[in-house]
Design a protein around this nucleic acid. Structure first.
Length: 279
DNA sequence: AACAATGTTCAGTC
DNA sequence: GGACTGAACATTGT
């Protein structure tokens, strides 16, 4: 699930956790919270508060203050391959639940495995002194929570990148354009689905070398990407993309009817229109 | 059983 | 050192 649009959705849910006093933290999952040892994050943040929720690409982080009002360490949260954020209000009950990283914004997920009632899939939990909580729910366990995340290694956010930045960062090298879009140090936030959706909308072959693009083509690609990202945020996730349901065997392009083709580009399964996105 | 999964990272090669 | 590739990571679903 989580690409830029889902993470932005999750970030907005994390904002529901701001300015509430942290009573305790369960950071005992050593894989998710590495390299911190159990209790380390708890010790650093207990008694303090989260004061702001930021996002760049797929990485979120919160500013914090300690109990005495001094600046605390930032808290990084990454949803990995399938993580979600749940926050409950002061009552702590299900009625006050906010779900982030999920397509059904504000509603309860329908699939059993997406419901928040599998305690063994809770990988991190922050309990507030008002009775509510924030937790990372992640059945695949590839999410991350850690102190002081290094966001400088990320490129500009894919929904915000400027025209000049895009030209300079994306339009060079011999790697496939899709691999370039997926490189988080080039620009941050594009995942496998958003890449396929963007390239399909732009009628660009995913395997075409990035350095071959003209300035005009790069500008057009950037416009398409930002539109795809923002539309997905608005609609609740990348899965709302037009071509996404057609990423399957025996499917056809929803625009021209030609067969969809499957392959591997940038190490990821890739689908494209065999006619409009030919090399 | 084998393989893929909306992500990241690290070892290895050119 | 940079660019690039492929496997590994933990876990679940098909």
């Amino acid at each position: 699930m989580p690409e830029l649009p889902e993470v932005e959705n999750a970030r907005q849910v994390v904002e529901k956790a701001l300015d509430r006093v942290i009573a305790s933290i369960d950071d005992t999952d050593e894989f998710v919270c590495r390299p911190h040892g159990p209790g380390e994050i708890d010790q650093a943040l207990k008694g303090g508060r989260l004061t702001a929720a930021h996002r760049r690409g797929k990485t979120m982080w919160c500013d914090t203050v300690t109990a005495d009002g001094a600046d605390g360490p930032s808290l990084g949260i990454h949803l990995g391959m399938g993580g979600r954020i749940f926050v409950t209000g002061p009552s702590g009950d299900a009625e006050s639940l906010y779900a982030g990283g999920d397509p059904h914004v504000g509603g309860m997920p329908k699939k059993a495995d997406e419901r928040p009632d599998k305690p063994e899939w809770d990988r991190f939990r922050m309990t507030f002194d008002d009775g509510g909580e924030m937790r990372l729910f992640d059945k695949r366990r590839l999410g991350r929570v850690h102190l002081e995340p290094d966001v400088d290694a990320l490129g500009p956010d894919a929904a915000e990148i400027t025209r000049d930045e895009f030209r300079a960062r994306v339009g060079k090298g011999v790697v496939a354009i899709k691999a370039k879009l997926l490189d988080q140090s080039v620009l941050a936030g594009v995942g496998n689905l958003l890449a396929d959706e963007t390239l399909w909308e732009a009628k660009v072959s995913p395997s075409r070398p990035a350095g071959e693009f003209s300035v005009a083509e790069l500008d057009a690609l950037r416009t398409t990407l930002r539109k795809a990202a923002r539309d997905a945020i608005k609609r609740g996730g990348v899965h709302t993309g037009e071509v996404i349901p057609h990423r399957a065997k025996d499917e056809t392009c929803p625009r021209c009817g030609a067969p969809m083709e499957r392959g591997t580009v940038g190490g990821r399964t890739t689908w494209w229109c065999s006619a409009e996105q030919a090399d």
